[in-house]
Every structure is written in C-alpha cells, then in structure tokens.
Design a protein around this nucleic acid. Structure first.
Lengths: 120, 120
DNA sequence: CGGTATCCTTTACGATACTG
DNA sequence: CAGTATCGTAAAGGATACCG
C-alpha cells in the first residue's frame, strides 16, 4: 500500500490510532482501566467478537495495549493500555474538546449543504 | 450505520476528519493555503481525481473547506480551508509531534511482536 | 470465557477513459 | 482544467455458528 502523502506527517499516526473501532477500544481502556475481553465487548456494544479480536491484535502488535492470559477455568484474558498508548491521552482529550465545541457546526454545515437546491 | 460507541466522544470527530485521504487534503490546504484542484492532485501525488473529488465534496459538506468556481476558460476552481477546518490546526500539530516522538516505538513494537516465535 | 471459522455485504479505493 | 463515468479490486466490517 503506497503512502497516501509522504509529506503529511500525521498520516502514519492516523493509520495506527484512528479507525472505526481502534479509537473506542483505546478510549475504553484508557477511561475504565484494565478489562477482560467480554467487558470490552459489552462496553462497545455493537462490535462483533471477530472484529474486536482483530483490532485488539493490531493494537497489541503496535504496542498500544498488552494482552495477559490467565490459564484458569474459565480462562481469563485481560487487556490494558501501555505507556505508549497512554501517551495519546492529551490528544484524546483535545479531540473530545474539539468535538464538543465544533460538532454542532459540522451538523449545521451539512444541513445547509444538503438544503441547497442549486446543487445538482 | 450504527454508532461505533455512543459513549466514545471522539468517534464522531474521527469519522469527519481522519480517513486515508481527508487528513492529507486538510493538511495540504492548511499548510500551503488556497489551491486549485490540480495543485492538490499533484501535491498528493498518488490520489486519483475521482477519489480527490469525493473527499473534497465530503469535506465541503462538513464545512471544513470551501470550493470556489471561477467561470473562465479554462475553468478555475479553488479550494480553501475554512475557520472550522483551521480550528483543527493545534490538533494536527500535536498529532505530528506525537508521531515524531513515538512512531519509532511503534515500529519497534511491531518488530518485537513479529519476531516472537511463540506466537502461533 | 475467549475466542475461530465461514460466508457475505459494504465501502473505500484504484485504473482507465472520456467530456464540458 | 476540473472533473465524471464505468468498470474492477481489496480490505473492513457484519452475521452466524461453533470450539477448547
């Protein structure tokens, strides 16, 4: 896969951290601490186990979270955010602030755009 | 499309701003100012005109950029980032900083993960 | 409990050609 | 120049069922 824009320094970061499900997963682990697989699944209620596994593996590979397997019956697996993952916290806070401040403006822009009848 | 995680406040922001091409487009407009279609296309060298048009329309609809059509021959269309789009600037700067500081750690994590032979 | 396996749909993206 | 049209591909995601 070719680099979208070599001169854009944040494209690689986006690739690692921001997809449909990685963001909610990292948020949940950051916000509510170490959690089991099923806890995450319940919190992110619309995700399927297959996709949850896929994203967790990717985040683990990228060093953003750790996976700890406890060989009990029934098995217990815990996920936790790493220092590297936690280093995103201020960024996440700013993103949340931006959303709170500007999401309604985006919504209004959409309505204005869609309402314009001169747009074919 | 169901909301990925209603309780995750940054998911909607990610949906608007961070996709493979929207980030480089916004970055280019923020960094180099008002530009024509073909200038953007050249700067983001690997994007195709179809996809560039699609992302530009979406960003315009979301109020992040403006499109100005000058009815000349040959036609001239200029894209410019809006105030709303510009409000992302500090966020982009922080993301770039995060990348500069931590991208190598991600790379090392990947290598360590891939090199572990006990992972089936 | 913590996943896999299988199959399917959606969506973004891409290649190429063409037009007002 | 600034797109549009029409293909096709590929990756993400979803539904459902099943397993150690």
């Amino acid at each position: 896969m070719a680099d979208p824009e070599p001169a854009c320094p944040i494209a690689p970061v986006v690739d690692i951290v921001f997809s449909r499900w990685t963001t909610p997963i990292l948020w949940a682990l950051h916000e509510y601490g170490r959690q089991r697989f099923v806890e995450l699944a319940r919190r992110i209620s619309t995700i399927t186990p297959k996709v949850l596994t896929q994203r967790l593996r990717q985040l683990e590979r990228d060093g953003m979270i750790t996976r700890t397997y406890h060989p009990e019956v029934p098995p217990r697996v815990e996920y936790e955010i790493t220092e590297l993952g936690r280093s995103l916290a201020p960024l996440f806070a700013e993103l949340a602030e931006w959303g709170a401040a500007h999401l309604d403006a985006v919504q209004r822009a959409r309505e204005a755009y869609d309402a314009d009848p001169t747009r074919p």
